[in-house]
């Protein structure tokens, strides 16, 4: 009987407490991030809120297999952590919160969400910080800038009383490894300097660089194209598109063709035996013809309207 009474009393006990103070307590407990469930979500986003809130809706459980959620979560926590360092009176008017799908699937249903992670920023609905245009509906954070904490903090700063004091942490490990690497390079340089002053080292470097560049490496870098399509399909459809593997194949073909020409120009004329020289001339000419045909047929795959073909 007593316990039932206590249970009945519980909501009142919550209600009796100032909701903002309650959220502050939750936030302190969670190291700057409120861990939400269905009840506290309603509390945080109540239509009478005088505070603003940024909520991460995510699915961190392993079974959900949400890789982006995992990637984004640390950034979120870092930004939220940086908010704990601002003075109390500003800190308590904006909250960071995380809602996991497994804690409150009903909220996801209510909001009509089927994907994660999503960040909503709720502006205050009442009080002095109410937005001038009267819009109290939450705004969604656009992930087009990636999962980095910097742009996220910048975006949330538009809705907080003072900007989120987030700074990218200095990556000591990276600097240290760069310094060590630099020193090591200087040390190694003493031993490999004959190689570095050799023109053929530079020649190979130059040619490899330009081969990689002319086979569309920068395209795959900038567009983040996958290494290959599924099911052994390594040629991307379309003239203005390509996979990572195509870079390797095309660079190899170009390289082989250039190499065959170089053999014909630089090596073959120095053969002293007529028979061997003849064999080499035929060999390299044959290689050029065959590889060139392969290249043209590869190009026909990419550009359907191309009318020419060689032997293949």
């Amino acid at each position: 009987m007593r316990s039932l009474f206590a249970l009945l009393l519980l909501p009142f006990a919550f209600a009796a407490k100032d909701p903002q103070q309650q959220l502050v307590d939750l936030s302190t407990a969670g190291n700057g991030v409120i861990k939400l469930d269905a009840t506290t979500f309603d509390l945080l986003t109540s239509p009478k809120r005088t505070w603003s809130a940024a909520i991460q809706l995510t699915a961190l459980d392993k079974r959900r297999r949400c890789t982006p959620c995992m990637e984004f979560d640390p950034s979120w926590n870092m930004v939220a952590k940086s908010w704990t360092s601002v003075p109390k009176e500003q800190r308590n008017t904006h909250f960071f919160a995380t809602l996991d799908f497994d804690d409150a699937p009903t909220v996801f249903q209510k909001l009509g969400l089927s994907s994660a992670p999503i960040v909503y920023v709720y502006p205050p609905a009442e009080g002095p910080r109410q937005p001038a245009n009267g819009k109290t509906a939450p705004s969604k954070y656009d992930f087009s800038t990636g999962f980095e904490p910097g742009p996220l903090a910048e975006h949330i700063s538009k809705h907080t009383p003072i900007p989120v004091p987030y700074k990218d942490p200095i990556d000591w490990a990276r600097w240290a490894s760069m310094a060590v690497g630099g020193l090591g390079l200087l040390f190694v340089l003493r031993f490999i300097s004959p190689i570095l002053t050799n023109r053929w080292t530079w020649a190979v470097g130059t040619v490899v660089t330009s081969l990689i560049m002319t086979s569309g490496y920068m395209f795959t870098r900038i567009r983040n194209s996958p290494y290959s399509g599924g099911g052994g399909n390594w040629i991307a459809a379309g003239y203005q598109n390509q996979f990572g593997q195509e870079v390797q194949v095309v660079a190899f073909i170009y390289g082989l063709l250039a190499f065959s020409f170089l053999m014909l120009i630089m090596i073959v004329p120095y053969q002293s035996s007529p028979y061997r020289q003849r064999m080499q001339v035929y060999l390299w000419t044959g290689v050029i013809m065959i590889i060139y045909s392969i290249l043209v047929s590869l190009f026909r795959v990419k550009n359907r309207g191309y009318p020419f073909k060689l032997f293949l």
């Binding site: 002319t214 086979s215 569309g216 920068m218 395209f219 870098r221 900038i222 567009r223 003239y239 203005q240 598109n241 390509q242 195509e246 870079v247 095309v250 290249l295 190009f299 990419k302 550009n303």
Partner: peptide, 9 residues
């Protein structure tokens, strides 16, 4: 950015 067919073309 340029894909390789453009170079060949």
């Amino acid at each position: 950015p340029t894909a390789w067919p453009s170079f060949f073309m």
